[in-house]
Design a protein around this nucleic acid. Structure first.
Lengths: 312, 312
DNA sequence: TTTAAGCAATCAATATTATTGATTGTTTTG
DNA sequence: CAAAACAATCAATAATATTGATTGCTTAAA
């Protein structure tokens, strides 16, 4: 049994196709087929059920794949140990970012980060919190930036910053003349909220006085775009809450509709999150530091109350 | 990086000697040397400091060895998964047994076990509790039989049986005429105790009324032999406590000196213990079952109080 | 029904890699 | 100082992985 064989098995399990798996492993299909056959022979067991199309895992196969993932991931940590020893910050680093953080935070730190750590090959993906959790667990992501706390046993968090919410109140709204809002002014019935993987949304709902069961709402907005949210608000669909960083470079006219909260302002906690195995921890720490330093200038609020993204 | 290379690294780390390590891996010394060099080259780091004699690990080397042990052990679990799937109970199984359990328990179950599970190649070692814990943690033992609870985070326990203590009171002892003893009769000052890795001993000391700090004792008995204990007792060194199974096949004359306790009799908990990773769990369960069935006939006590082997 | 496409297995040829026995140079030991 | 112990090196060889070409099966399209 070799680590190579195990990675081949993982690839086939993922793509359910020997040819495609071979491509991803940068070998020819016979190479991959033979190595897997060899492993199956040595174990005297079938890992894949080749009679099904597309190919399926057998029952043992499933367990073996799970253990193989374990072993392959642990083997990566050898290189990780060496990198840490050398203080080397580099290699591929796959990071996920939730939609409501992506457009504001990424431009703020990306340039600084790649300048400071040119050897890191960043792969950035916009993903919902749910997708992020899945991919951190299966090893497809090295880290992510999301609203926290998540309270997921396999995922660790490091807080980057607290981002206050600012209310966007259109002209026709009952609160249009109250320039400084209290949290108690919020009413779920005349508010418009982003979906954002049930995360941002759920947190805000809990803020509102007398919030109801989520099911009896008029509609759900599935866009991840704050732009859309503002436009719908202008169309008379209700007021909305915007994360502070989104309000910085709004047009002057739109800024007219912004209403701040009295302290403690509601806020969300934004963290860099990663698997508890702490693979590539040096890069995670490097990124945490860069983000913290650029955000420090942009957000200077002290008195905030955290809105947990956890449902219920 | 291959699993083979990692096992070579582990062997050298263990024996601090390339030649001996090569032997244990069933390859020649150049083979092992070259593979380790290749790994070091690929990682561009020294795992071993060859200038020291005997060879030492470098700082990174130590971390790599620790991770390598992890990976190699996890790789064994692939075969384990296959064995479990097939219901196969076999292969090498290394078990440690504490001295005060070995001579009574082993003869009771060994024959039955090897008859029932002929494919298991048992390697049995008599070891102290301390040695057992070390070896379960470093993977040199698959399981062990010891007095519990140990409260060790890496080790799991399954209770096999509770074994009452029986007092052995020589003719010249103050308690020689009290045929049924109470726990409160015990006095550390006229008792003789086995060392047994601080384990059996510590448990008993806690039983005695007004027990003192262990340091101010007249002497410590380092033998693991119950025989010696009885002989010393006969020489007037004091009474002693024997695990019940040891009293079954004593000579009739010796049995005259046995004094039982009133219920609840003090007793020790004897368990099969194993690493939390649960490798070779089928064999462990098979052994647990065999032992439980043979002991069931020999020990039929209900009302006992457990003497914890934990110091303090 | 025929044809084409998709896909994994097979095969023989080749490239790569691991292993070996012999040897060397160094260090340790008696 | 000589002998032993030991790891590195080397060239030869054994073992193994990889490949391109092909086959045979199944599915999808004409």
């Amino acid at each position: 049994m070799t680590i190579t064989q195990l990675t081949y098995v993982l690839a086939v399990a993922e793509y359910q196709n020997f040819t495609k798996a071979a491509e991803k492993c940068f070998v020819t299909q016979p190479t991959l087929s033979m190595q897997i056959q060899k492993l199956e022979d040595q174990l005297s067991i079938q890992i894949f059920d080749r009679s099904k199309k597309p190919i399926e895992l057998t029952d043992v196969g499933r367990k073996i794949v799970s253990q193989a993932r374990n072993i392959v991931n642990e083997s990566y940590r050898i290189q990780d140990i060496v990198d840490q020893q050398k203080g080397f910050i580099g290699g591929e680093f796959r990071i996920g970012i939730i939609p409501t953080v992506m457009p504001t935070l990424l431009p703020m730190f990306l340039k600084t980060f790649i300048k400071k750590h040119p050897k890191v090959k960043l792969k950035i993906e916009e993903l919902t919190t749910e997708e992020i959790i899945t991919r951190i667990n299966d090893g497809h992501l090295d880290a992510a930036i999301a609203a926290t706390p998540l309270e997921n046993a396999n995922i660790k968090e490091r807080v980057l910053y607290f981002e206050p919410f600012v209310a966007y109140v259109p002209n026709n709204h009952r609160l249009k003349d109250k320039k400084i809002l209290e949290v108690s002014d919020l009413d779920i019935d005349d508010m418009l909220l982003l979906e954002d993987g049930h995360c941002f949304r759920d947190g805000v709902i809990n803020l509102c006085k007398g919030f109801k069961d989520q099911t009896d709402e008029h509609f759900q907005l599935e866009s991840g775009s704050i732009e859309t949210l503002i436009k719908l608000s202008n169309e008379g669909m209700g007021m909305t809450l915007l994360p502070y960083l989104h309000t910085i470079d709004m047009s002057e006219s739109a800024k007219q509709n912004l209403h701040h909260f009295t302290a403690p302002s509601p806020a969300r906690e934004v963290s860099i999150i990663y698997h508890k195995s702490e693979l590539k921890m040096q890069i995670i720490e490097a990124m945490q530091e860069v983000i913290a330093s650029v955000v420090r200038g942009a957000i200077a609020f002290r008195n905030v109350q955290i809105v947990s993204p956890l449902a219920k």
